[in-house]
Design a protein around this nucleic acid. Structure first.
Lengths: 342, 342
DNA sequence: TGTTAGCACTCCTCTCGATAGAGTGCTAAC
DNA sequence: GTTAGCACTCTATCGAGAGGAGTGCTAACA
């Protein structure tokens, strides 16, 4: 365990590095932070901290920078919890009032707010359809050969697709079919609607395979990837202001990842854990972001976790501030979303 | 007017610059392109071309690069029309088959195809709701206090929103209201549904102002910006591979623009002109992309222009190839989209 | 008259070495 | 245990010089 002075030195070093992005020497720490000891003492302590793996040196005559282990210790033990100020809360609410007119825009604007406030990349995973509960489906007439199949969830999300229906079938037949499917599926969450149930429907309810295939496809899509499964991004340009991304090749690597929707959904995959999760450097599973840190939180509607929000940036990140903002959004986003469903 | 030899030299120079991104000297042209004259002659011609404003010199002892005027002349008069190969056509069709399951994905994948094939940024403006024709609206029950308002267009696009309805009102009342609104609006395109008509509806059909406000809002949103109005982007990372964007600050400027949805919609605003439009450098209205060129085309469904596709890249762009691909997509995308509506 | 070879000139870019500066580790003294 | 002093290491920066690419001009040639 680190003694008090080592902790103070580590804290000073990390704080300084976070704001300057420059390696810090013993003299700088002695001058900037009043620890009551001279630079030589700090030098000795820093040598110890390096031995223990909390800080690193790029070359013999450079200052020290925090290691991943150092950041981890900082986040776990040194960080003073911060809070979003009342002023900021008002600003956030006003922002939503002014810019978000529809549910999708809430996600988009949340991403923007997160990236503006943290000056980092933000990611918002919209509620996952698969966790919603099937309420009913309905066919809406379009023309002689086509109908729109609409699937409604209990939260009011909608999934729809235009499908054609076979010659000779009457719209009334479709309504009857819808009624039967509804009574079978009503109240089930989408991740419970498995292939077996669909097969059952096929055999017992739907006679015409062509219609079935279309309907089945829509249901299946609703089960897997749908528009509500989208990851909204914000502030990718923030990246370019960070000194660690002065190199175009590094930027390219990261942007490449952010362009892959599938990968993003994977990265954002909602964890059971209902709190704030900090992944530092190589703690991230995905190779391309292992030089970054990611702070992630879930959000819930009526107690049920439905999606996630996250901030991605260099390991040299203002963890305190980022965590405070995510903490606030974690508990606040659900309410905001509820508003938009009324 | 340029004589034949000047044209050949200009063409050689631009072709070379497009593939190498390096200024080209007289000796290089003489060696690489067999024009039957020596470098000294080419030097003289190049001096003339520079006088006339077709090419530029960065400093006294550098080679020449094309100017905007040079590119313009190249595009208008020198470029041999190219065609998408049959092989490429097959690849494109397979791509759609494999990746696009829903209409939105067609746009997304179109953007991807465009960026992959051109190695530049691509933009796809999805069909504008405002140009669609209102078919009908319908209320779907959700719970005791809320219904889903669904607006259906003749092309099968759907706009929906959850709205609450006043105490004491019956669902049957809503259906009656829907019927009346439908008979008033049916067959009108959304850009014809103006405030005056909405007011008329308010006075003659809807009694309860609260309900009206919600309904009105949805209609209004359908008239302005909706999800189908989105601009899909592809290949922003391609940018970073281009030597002209080696400088992080330039990248930042451009990405900043691409992050602003509104601006994108503006840039992509569908032109009346139904063909391929090339904007070179400062011919672009928006300041941030004035170091770039943009090639844009429309696409149509059943003869009606509904959206636009574009490729954005450095002025040093393979115009021939880009135009060929856009030309193909221009005439092909409509068909692809029709498939997804059946 | 148009074309070409030759040559001096300009300007950029790369490399090398010297220098200044930051920071360290070690030792000896407090 | 702490500190001052000092030699040492490594980096970043700057300028000089060499090398190279390309030009414009002139004079000669077909």
């Amino acid at each position: 365990m680190l003694d008090e002075r080592k902790k103070k030195i580590l804290q000073a070093l990390i704080t300084d590095y976070i704001s300057t992005a420059e390696p810090i020497g013993s003299r700088t720490i002695a001058r900037k932070y009043d620890l009551g000891v001279g630079p030589a003492t700090i030098r000795n302590e820093m040598a110890d901290l390096e031995m223990l793996g909390y800080i690193e040196q790029l070359h013999t005559s450079s200052g020290r920078i925090p290691s991943a282990k150092g950041y981890r210790f900082y986040v776990d033990s040194l960080l003073a919890p911060e809070q979003v100020t009342d002023n900021e809360k008002v600003l956030i609410n006003n922002w939503y009032e002014a810019k978000a007119r529809r549910v999708e825009e809430v996600f988009q604007e949340t991403a923007k707010i997160l990236s503006r406030m943290t000056r980092n990349i933000s990611m918002v995973l919209a509620p996952q359809f698969s966790q919603c509960i099937f309420k009913y489906l309905q066919f809406l007439p379009l023309d002689e050969h086509r109908v729109i199949l609409v699937i409604v969830t209990d939260t009011g999300f909608i999934e729809n697709k235009v499908i054609s229906f076979p010659e000779g079938m009457l719209f009334e037949d479709l309504q009857q079919i819808a009624g039967r499917i509804n009574s079978r599926l009503a109240g089930l969450s989408f991740d419970k609607i498995k292939a077996s149930i669909l097969r059952e429907i096929k055999e017992n309810i739907l006679q015409d395979p062509r219609l079935f295939d279309s309907t089945l496809q829509v249901l299946r899509e609703a089960l897997t990837v749908s528009k509500s499964d989208r990851v909204y991004l914000g502030g990718t340009t923030q990246l370019l202001s960070q000194p660690e991304f002065r190199d175009v090749d590094k930027v390219k690597g990261l942007l490449n990842i952010l362009e892959q929707d599938k990968l993003l959904r994977d990265i954002m995959h909602v964890t059971e854990k209902d709190g704030i999760l900090v992944r530092i450097g190589e703690e991230n599973k995905y190779i391309g972001i292992q030089e970054c840190s990611m702070v992630q939180a879930t959000y819930a509607i009526e107690g049920q976790v439905v999606g996630a929000i996250a901030v991605l940036g260099p390991t040299r990140m203002e963890y305190g501030k980022v965590m405070a903002i995510l903490e606030f959004m974690h508990s606040h986003l659900g309410e905001i979303l509820k508003k938009y469903k009324v």
